[in-house]
Amino acid sequence: MFSPQRIWWKPLGRLERSWLIIAFVWCLFLTAMMPIWYFLGRQNVPTTSYRVTPQQFSQLTTDFIAQYKVDEEKGIPVVAPPPGDIYLIGRAWEWTPILKLKKGETYRLHLSSLDFQHGFSLQPANLNFMAIPGYDYVITLTPTQSGEYSIVCNEYCFVGHHLMVGKLIVTE
């Protein structure tokens, strides 16, 4: 609250110095964790992305659906693609198509939005990524458990936001 004595540049006390060192070491450790996990960990944030217009992305997905469509559920196509490039569109307020994947196989999921920003939230695996119009976000993923998953939109995308939920199936 008050002006300090004229000379306040003084050496730290014993406990202050000890805490400063402990805290700094902890900070260095926190810093190191991210690169360590980047090289050794199995879960990392994808860094591949491309520019894409909504029209281009819509075309890519339409072609993809036409090629691998196996079924339809509530008006949304179900596709069973081989490992490799797969596409998912987020738009107000649905995820298209329903992807049928195989456990243990690796896919390159292209994720984008055709209108607003959407949030790809895979539940219950709890993996979350942004779907932003104009960006093709490539997520290289390998399902580790079979079952039925839902894709909740977790970025507010106007008044129908809470209606936006998609489906993803992983088979053995």
């Binding site: 949030g119 939230s121 539940q123 219950p124 709890n126 998953y149 909740v152 507010y156 936001h161 209606l163």
Partner: peptide
């Protein structure tokens, strides 16, 4: 949040949505 509930969401039970969501 740990169980997957998203923020800014009106209805996490998804009663009006096309599919049910896998939220415990």
């Amino acid at each position: 949040g740990i169980q997957g509930v998203s923020r800014r969401h009106w209805d996490i039970t998804f009663t009006q949505a096309v599919f049910p969501a896998s939220i415990p």
